[in-house]
Simulated scan of single mutants.
Amino acid sequence: MEKDVTQQQGRITDNLSRIIQIIQVEGRTGELRVGRGEGINAEIGSIGFTNGQIVFAQVGSYMGPDALNIMIGWGKCVFVFIPHLTTGPLQQTGPIPSQRETSPVIPQLRQSAPQQGGQPATASGNNSFPLTAVPRATMSVMKAIGVIEKAGLPRLYRQVILAIDGRQAVGELIRSINCTPEEMSQILQTLEELTIIRVVR
């Protein structure tokens, strides 16, 4: 249901960052309008996309990367995607700094091999992480993405940092991102070396 973001009626999601990723990977152009809460506690936000690239974001009095950083962390909320937006009052002069590329942030999903029994469950690699270990971010998502881009790391690293919420264990991240245990082990090791995350074993 979450993938159907072109309907004019509002839909509910438990993970707004997943909806943002879907729009990016499908290279859509339009405006994602989101809201949560009611009455005086209501929050309304908007994110604009051009060919999957984020070009503006606003929530309350926040705009640009600050607004995007807030909304990426939203859980349950209502969203509507309005396609083919070309201009808008919130349009900025260029892409938000963390989204310089027009190609999707996430690679096409693929099925990962099921975990085999026998040996203790770990993400394979020289410095393997137990599948029950929980990665936690040590900085804001926007700052982390800036470090990842400066280091010239692949887009998959940005997908992982978007998925890390301090609750999902390594095994859950492997399933949600559909990468191999070896890939996840390498990514987490690199992110930890860059002090973007720490992995609680």
Score class of each variant (00 low, 15 high):
residue 2 E to S: 14
residue 2 E to Y: 09
residue 4 D to Q: 12
residue 10 G to P: 04
residue 10 G to M: 07
residue 14 D to E: 13
residue 17 S to F: 08
residue 17 S to L: 10
residue 19 I to F: 03
residue 19 I to H: 02
residue 25 V to G: 01
residue 28 R to C: 09
residue 29 T to C: 09
residue 29 T to W: 05
residue 38 E to D: 12
residue 38 E to T: 14
residue 42 A to G: 08
residue 42 A to K: 15
residue 43 E to W: 04
residue 44 I to W: 10
residue 45 G to W: 03
residue 46 S to K: 13
residue 47 I to Y: 05
residue 47 I to F: 04
residue 49 F to W: 02
residue 53 Q to Y: 04
residue 53 Q to N: 07
residue 57 A to K: 05
residue 70 I to L: 15
residue 76 K to C: 10
residue 76 K to L: 09
residue 79 F to H: 08
residue 87 T to I: 12
residue 88 G to R: 05
residue 89 P to E: 10
residue 110 R to F: 04
residue 111 Q to D: 00
residue 112 S to E: 11
residue 114 P to H: 02
residue 125 G to L: 05
residue 132 T to S: 12
residue 133 A to S: 10
residue 135 P to E: 01
residue 137 A to F: 00
residue 138 T to N: 14
residue 144 A to S: 15
residue 152 G to T: 06
residue 154 P to Y: 13
residue 158 R to H: 10
residue 160 V to H: 00
residue 165 D to A: 04
residue 166 G to L: 06
residue 167 R to A: 11
residue 172 E to D: 10
residue 173 L to R: 02
residue 177 I to P: 01
residue 178 N to T: 06
residue 178 N to G: 15
residue 181 P to F: 04
residue 189 Q to C: 10
residue 190 T to M: 12
residue 193 E to S: 15
residue 194 L to M: 14
residue 198 R to E: 13
